[in-house]
């Protein structure tokens, strides 16, 4: 716990959008650097590749690309830092990673399928699961 608190510091608020942006890039680099460790401790070699994980991280970040308020970006960044630290410290289990970042990616990709454009919500839900 102490380790978590030490590593996840609350930085001072970003003064401008530019600063917030650069922090996001810093965070992305940090996350990418920890991918080999993550692959190692969660035994992910046979389910996912490094580049897939990288694009998973970037898609998670891109999901919030519409946010322009530096305060909100700071908040999201803090949550991302926390998540990354939890993962690197092995506070999660293998299936958490697989569910959120390996399979979750496919789910995102499915949502973006161009073939489904114009179909009803029913059909979109139907392709996803039986329960809706």
């Amino acid at each position: 716990m102490a380790f978590t608190l030490r590593s996840v510091k609350v930085p001072p608020n970003s003064a401008s959008l530019e600063e917030a942006k650069s922090r996001v890039f810093d965070f992305f680099r940090q996350a990418c650097r920890s991918i080999p460790t993550i692959m190692d401790i969660y035994n992910l070699d046979d389910v996912v590749t490094k580049s897939e994980l990288r694009s998973s991280i970037s898609s998670q970040i891109r999901k919030n690309s519409h946010v322009t308020n530096p305060k909100v970006i700071d908040l999201l960044l803090f949550k991302g830092m926390e998540e990354l630290n939890n993962i690197v410290e092995h506070a999660k289990q293998r299936h958490h990673i697989i569910g959120q970042y390996v399979l979750g990616r496919q789910g995102l990709a499915q949502d973006l399928d161009t073939k489904d454009e114009g179909t009803s919500d029913f059909l979109k839900n139907f392709y996803k699961s039986n329960y809706f």
Partner: peptide
């Protein structure tokens, strides 16, 4: 119990097929 595998309810399949 939940459905097995990728199965769907009968009427949903027909409803989805009708839309396709």
């Amino acid at each position: 119990v939940p459905t097995v595998g990728d199965a769907r309810d009968d009427w949903k399949i027909i409803r989805a097929l009708s839309e396709v």
